[in-house]
């Protein structure tokens, strides 16, 4: 209740100073869903530089990374964002998983430790967000509890959510499965890697921010 009231007051305040405020846009989701790839795509589109390094190995992003003053223009409108790329949230991390990628054991153990800290850091940042893009891998089962937990938390905090069904360039991808799993949310299917449907993403993003 207190959270909802705080968010309400925050929004009124934001509307008063809308022109000066940067919108904190968080990228959340499970590991390896393409959060950094999407953040990089947006940064490249509007700043000409990337926010972080994307990789096929899970938990590549192990710290929250920010990129300020990302001005996105869409259909004559302009909004200024602070992009917040977060580490993947998971319920389990086993260093042995990284050994499959031919990583030395010590490096894998270090990576696992950093990944656990990154997950905690990502959760702590939830309250700071004005809007969140939940990036899901459209080739995987969307009913994972981590996805449900992240989205449920954002709803409880009254933070606007846009769900991205990423990796639609892959054969196994299904936007419908994601839509069916979260029918009360707006879902955009895209390929962050190839830039497919990115215009539709900006359209949905502006629409969700307008509704705040």
């Amino acid at each position: 209740m207190i959270r909802i009231l705080t968010n309400f007051v925050k929004r009124i305040f934001l509307q008063l100073f809308a022109e000066k405020k940067q919108i904190k846009l968080g990228f959340y989701g499970p590991p390896n869903s393409g959060k950094t790839t999407l953040s990089n795509k947006i940064c490249k589109d509007w700043l000409g530089e990337e926010i972080g390094v994307a990789s096929k190995i899970p938990h590549e992003t192990r710290n929250v990374t920010l990129k300020d003053s990302v001005v996105i223009k869409h259909r004559g409108k302009e909004l200024s964002f602070t992009l917040v790329d977060t580490p993947g949230i998971a319920t389990k991390i086993d260093y042995e998983e990284f050994l499959k990628y031919k990583m030395p054991e010590a490096v894998a153990k270090k990576r696992a430790k950093e990944a656990t800290k990154g997950g905690i850091e990502a959760i702590k940042w939830l309250d700071e967000m004005d809007c969140v893009v939940v990036v899901l891998d459209a080739t995987k089962n969307p009913y994972s509890q981590v996805n449900v937990t992240i989205i449920g938390n954002l709803a409880a905090r009254d933070i606007p959510v846009l769900i991205v069904a990423n990796k639609i360039d892959l054969k196994k991808a299904s936007i419908k499965k994601v839509e069916d799993a979260f029918p009360q949310y707006e879902v955009v299917g895209l390929s962050a890697l190839e830039g497919t449907n990115i215009e539709e993403f900006y359209e949905s993003l502006f629409r969700i921010i307008k509704r705040r």
Partner: peptide, 28 residues
Amino acid sequence: LKPEEETGLIEKTMESIGKKFTGIEICT
């Protein structure tokens, strides 16, 4: 659990991960 308790559980799980305990699987 309440949504904030679920994230609390994930947080505590992450803090507990070590040699013997690699985490949890959860479903509701």
